[in-house]
Design a protein around this nucleic acid. Structure first.
Length: 755
DNA sequence: TTTTGAGTCCTTTTT
DNA sequence: GGACTCAAAA
């Protein structure tokens, strides 16, 4: 027992940590010590012998959070956390599927498709079935399939209302067959397959139910339908109606005796920002009702931010209607006001940030403690450019991840082919890369042969006659030649494959190949550190699986590495230890905190993003995102926006974000003169041709129209011009008509009346 | 078959 | 601004 474990907790935190073994819901505001409560709870359960490390399952959403949990836990307790079931939903499901791959109907070395792989697989499928990808855009189909899976729906269970959807369901079914044949699994499939495994296999389900006495869930507000059902299954909570979408109710109390664990869920409905990928805030309410949660504890004291920052966050989130309700407070002082800066252009904004960062550095702030946040990844480029020119070290999270770079994916595809030659996605990726004279026609022949034989592309190679067949056979020979290298240690295997595949040679010959070569070397390093990594989980052997398989331990290394590459694509970052400025999207900033936060791009259409402005639901999610952004800051918060911004090669004119207006004025300190809304916009009257350095205010106007101008339209009603492009007779304006939506109107056609 | 160049669409956020 | 697709030329 570690007596000082509970020392520094406040009464609410203490109550949460030491709750009896019942279902519990902790509503934890930003910075209220949520993670701390979760970790201390685990430590407390173990050190008071209420649970064994093996009896605990703790699940998070990001690898970052899972890793942190493991580190902090091992600092608290003198135990080996290695074998513990702590990880992301995807990671834990993967682990379960690997352990019971046969019961789950998967090959032992099944591969995981990331988003790009999945899209490639769908494109390949559409091509093979001769489906018009104009009518069924791969991206859209991908979303459709994932959405169904996240609802827990197999093709047979999807209700198709129209022909279009019926066809999409057919394609969904075909996609499933393809994946099954190739032995690959996409992200959503990991969860669904694991859920079905537990649901159908009663002994297995009982085994895990009996084992996991305590199930702890971080960021519960981000769970989707399927994840919630998975949790229910593990906690032995019977599902109501089996049919999808049926509200339970009939079976609200346990038919099975309580032979299983209880759920300790921690969440903050105000920080639910993953609705776009199926997260259901409603799960919090459902959980409360279905599990008859007696213990709801609110953690409202914030230990992170100064008062002004917190007041701003509270003021913003108050504009949302659907809330469980909670108000953060702090006993730290009010602190500094929130600084607001208006820039002429995105470039000016970036340069101003650079200057401000320099000043902060002079004042003794560490760069590591300064974060630069933005709404979308595309915004990072201009910031990076300015920082790079200024010689300020920085580190970008997210964006193009290491394992998503093309040269890395190519190398991994060779490795995947070695592990599983049926992996057609990997096959298609590298069969002609580097170029070896196998073009579209040869592939087509091969595909026909494969379809006729019902086999994978690789297996169908001997079927192809002639010259194409010879080239293909040479490729097959190449892969076969690589295979013995599986007996080498992983880093050497990677090195070997980079060499034999001709990738190294290829990039050496390429003009821009230097960086790619460096990345391939980095991949070897990544393999080295992966093998050396201490905290890596060992292959599960408790259920007698994974014995007697022909595959040796080394290929288990390979499989684990490939899994790591797919599941933890973002984890591998160079320059981790440096004192660098932190750049990331608001989404990836969740769960982190910094002394100083710059929130850039505070413009209507960007933040809130124009795609979400129209529906209340979308806008509320944007607002929660803003709430997350604001609450990342401990001492100082900057909000900045630009009047013009380059977006997809076009100049866009922005208004300041409504979220700035939602902060009480007395909390703000304008670093530039505050203009009246709509009034500051320079007139774009010159037929809206963007001028390089727009003048502010004044000047003549044409037809009384300019960005920020209120207008009236006969059909759509009143609105505000938010954007403009083109000139002369091509001039078009984008108008936000509020309830009637966002419209692009040609000035020569639409009759707009200036108000 | 491969390479190159013009043209198109894109972009929200992540495991 | 860039990744990707498709057409024409080597």
């Amino acid at each position: 027992m570690t007596p000082h474990l509970l020392d520094k907790l406040n009464p609410e935190q203490l109550a949460a940590v030491t709750l009896p073994a019942q279902h519990a819901l902790i509503l934890a505001g930003a910075g209220s010590g949520k993670t701390r409560v979760l970790i201390t709870r685990i430590a407390w359960l173990i050190s008071t012998n209420q649970a064994t490390p093996q009896g605990i399952l703790a699940v998070t959403f990001t690898n970052k959070a899972a890793k942190e949990m493991l580190t902090r836990l091992s600092a608290m307790l003198p135990i080996n956390v290695r074998g513990m079931w702590i990880g992301t939903f995807h990671g834990l499901c993967n682990r379960m599927l690997r352990a019971h791959h046969r019961d789950a109907g998967l090959p032992q070395l099944f591969q995981i498709l990331d988003t790009a792989d999945q899209q490639a697989a769908i494109k390949r499928l559409l091509k093979a079935l001769n489906v018009d990808d104009e009518k069924f855009p791969p991206r859209e189909l991908q979303h459709f399939i994932n959405a169904q899976k996240e609802q827990g729906l197999r093709p047979a269970a999807v209700e198709a209302w129209d022909d279009y959807t019926r066809r999409r369901v057919e394609l969904y079914a075909a996609y499933e067959q393809q994946c099954q044949r190739e032995g690959v699994v996409d992200f959503a499939e990991l969860l669904l397959r694991c859920y079905e495994l537990l649901e159908r296999n009663e002994p297995l389900r009982r085994h895990y139910q009996a084992r996991f006495r305590h199930i702890l869930v971080d960021e519960f507000q981000d769970t989707n339908v399927l994840q919630y059902r998975w949790l229910k299954l593990l906690a032995g909570h019977a599902e109501g109606g089996r049919a999808a979408g049926l509200p339970q109710g009939a079976a609200s109390h346990d038919p099975e005796p309580r032979s299983s664990g209880c759920i300790f869920a921690v969440g903050d409905d105000d920080q639910s920002i993953y609705g776009f990928r199926g997260a259901e805030v409603g799960n919090m309410r459902d959980f409360e009702r279905e599990f008859e949660v007696a213990n709801i504890i609110r953690l409202e004291q914030n230990y992170r931010s100064h008062g002004n920052i917190l007041d701003a966050a509270n003021a913003i989130i108050k504009h949302n209607e659907r809330r469980l309700g909670k108000n953060l407070w702090t006993d730290a002082g009010a602190g500094e006001p929130i600084r607001v800066f208006e820039a002429f252009s995105d470039g000016d904004e970036a340069r101003w940030i650079v200057e401000e960062v320099r000043a902060l550095s002079r004042d003794g702030h560490t760069r590591r403690e300064i974060a630069l946040l933005y709404r979308s990844n595309a915004q990072s480029r201009i910031l990076e450019h300015a920082l790079f020119s200024a010689g300020i070290p920085y580190r970008v999270y997210g964006g193009l991840r290491f394992f998503e770079r093309q040269e890395i994916k190519h190398a991994l595809a060779y490795l995947r082919l070695i592990a599983n030659s049926d992996d057609d996605t990997a096959f298609a990726r590298v069969v002609n890369f580097p170029a070896r004279g196998i073009g579209a026609r040869s592939i087509e022949q091969l595909q026909d042969a494969a379809r006729a034989a019902g086999s994978s592309l690789f297996a169908a190679i001997p079927q192809v006659p002639g010259k194409a067949g010879a080239s293909l056979a040479a490729f097959a020979a190449l892969i076969d030649k690589m295979r013995p290298a599986m007996d080498l240690p992983l880093p050497e295997l990677v090195e070997h494959v980079v060499e034999l595949s001709g990738l190294r040679q290829h990039y050496q010959n390429e003009k821009e190949g230097q960086e790619r070569l460096a990345n391939l070397d980095e991949l070897v390093n990544a393999a080295t550190s992966f093998v050396a990594e201490e905290g890596r989980e060992l292959p599960e052997s408790e259920d007698g699986e994974a014995t007697g398989e022909p595959t040796g331990e080394l290929s288990a290394d390979l499989a684990a590495f490939l899994t790591h590459a797919a599941l933890e694509a973002g984890e591998h970052q160079a320059g981790e230890g440096d004192d660098a400025l932190q750049l990331m999207t608001v989404h990836s900033a969740k769960g982190l905190e910094f002394n100083v936060v710059f929130m850039s791009g505070m413009e209507e259409g960007l933040f809130p993003h124009e795609n979400s402005i129209l529906e209340a639901k979308g806008l509320e999610e944007e607002r929660r995102l803003m709430y997350v952004a604001v609450t990342r800051a401990r001492q100082r918060l900057y909000l900045s926006f630009a009047q013009t911004r380059m977006l997809h090669g076009q100049t866009r004119y922005g208004l300041s974000s409504r979220f700035i207006d939602e902060i009480p004025g007395e909390l703000l300190k304008w670093l530039t003169p505050k203009a009246k809304k709509g009034g500051y916009a320079y007139e774009a009257a010159d037929a809206f041709t963007p001028s390089p350095r727009p003048r502010a205010g004044g000047g003549g106007e044409r037809g009384g129209l300019r960005v920020g101008q209120s207008v009236a339209h006969a059909k759509f009603g009143q609105g505000v011009i938010v954007n403009a492009e083109g000139s002369g007779s091509d001039a078009r304006v984008q108008v936000n008509f509020g309830p009637a939506g966002m419209k692009w109107l040609a000035l020569s056609v639409a009759k707009l009346e200036a108000l």
